[in-house]
């Protein structure tokens, strides 16, 4: 029964999420936007670390470059912010090429440190970009939100202020990005490339011996997740409306929390980041009044999960119940065997 019900529940939840700007207060939409941002980042990091074995601590590079490319597109080229978001994604993917060139020479912990260093170099380089405010950053020009495509239509449809309409638009886009990420990850991991990736994760040497090219597959994942992370970063900063190198390239905001979410939810499992982000959000709300205690609790929970449930809460759940609505397993074909031999 639960098997036939779960898609219905998922569809209902999705419908509620899409309807939210029409029925919920603006603060809640903004809140959820932040959560969805972390979800998209976590899904990307999960693909990298959980499936491709690339434990990157430099994902903030792509968020920052996506954000700055979007600002450049608006301020320097006068383009629509939504076009800027796409440019942000492309810029991040382009930056990923030289980054991969250096970082892929490193393995494991060295790769992690290497990506972090590259991200910080990017932060320092962007701080020199005077046209975008240098180290102090810059804001979106006044009226950017008003002139953004679709905002007028949404304003009329929901009967809200321009700012709320812009929030609704970015929220819908981020929600759609999250859904697209989930669907794309599922299709990718079920594909030939995804199968090869899982083989590499289990034994890289053996994978090579059956014809899998680890470098090619890892590079593909690195570039694709850089693109999605760049899109996400650009979109996030439309809503924030102000960018500084420190905020856009923050390792805490864009990578540390994301690692935490993925690890407690279930690294290397598809629904893990969703579970993780729900837990993260619940903790954030419950502990919002306690200041630093909140971070301490997060840290302790993260350690506990790493020690006692290495595949996270979702891994624990599937191990206990056997329920897995998004299975990545390939089942053998049912061959109708002839009863007589020819």
């Amino acid at each position: 029964m639960s098997r036939s019900l779960s898609p219905l529940i998922a569809l209902f939840a999705l419908a509620v999420l899409y309807a939210l700007p029409a029925i919920a207060p603006r603060a809640m939409v903004q809140d959820l936007f932040g959560i969805l941002t972390l979800l998209v980042l976590a899904m990307n990091w999960n693909l990298l670390a959980g499936f491709a074995g690339l434990v990157s601590v430099g994902q903030q590079a792509f968020v920052g470059i996506g954000a700055y490319a979007m600002f450049a597109a608006i301020i320097l080229m006068g383009l629509d912010p939504l076009v800027g978001v796409v440019i942000g994604g492309i810029a991040a993917a382009v930056f990923a090429v030289p980054m991969a060139f250096f970082a892929f020479r490193l393995n494991g912990a060295y790769f992690a440190i290497g990506t972090w260093v590259v991200a910080d170099i990017a932060r320092l380089a962007i701080s020199q970009w005077k046209a975008l405010g240098g180290g102090t950053g810059t804001s979106l020009p006044k009226g950017t939100a008003k002139e953004m495509a679709f905002v007028d239509g949404i304003k009329e449809m929901l009967d809200v202020s321009t700012a709320a309409a812009a929030d609704a638009l970015t929220y819908w886009l981020m929600l759609s990005l999250a859904v697209a990420m989930l669907v794309a990850s599922y299709i990718f991991l079920r594909s030939r490339m995804g199968l090869g990736l899982q083989a590499i994760r289990d034994n890289e040497n053996a994978a090579r011996s059956v014809g899998v090219d680890p470098l090619k597959l890892k590079a593909a994942v690195f570039l694709l997740t850089a693109f999605a992370t760049g899109l996400c970063g650009a979109l996030a900063f439309i809503q924030i409306t102000r960018v500084t190198p420190d905020a856009a390239f923050s390792v805490i905001d864009w990578t540390a929390f994301v690692i935490f979410i993925t690890v407690i939810g279930g690294i290397g499992t598809l629904p893990g980041p969703i579970v993780g982000v729900v837990v993260f959000y619940a903790l954030q709300r419950a502990l919002a009044d306690y200041g630093t205690i909140y971070l301490i609790v997060l840290g302790c929970l993260g350690i506990a999960v790493m020690l006692f449930a290495r595949r996270g809460l979702w891994g624990l759940f599937t191990d206990r119940t056997g329920i897995d609505p998004l299975p990545l397993r390939h089942r053998p074909p049912r061959v109708a065997k002839p009863s007589h031999s020819a």
């Binding site: 199968l195 899982q198 083989a199 289990d202 034994n203 390939h330």
Partner: peptide, 13 residues
């Protein structure tokens, strides 16, 4: 072997 994959998936790769 690819330990976390099934025997069938080992061959499928």
């Amino acid at each position: 072997p690819f330990g976390d994959l099934t025997v069938y998936e080992n061959l499928l790769v």
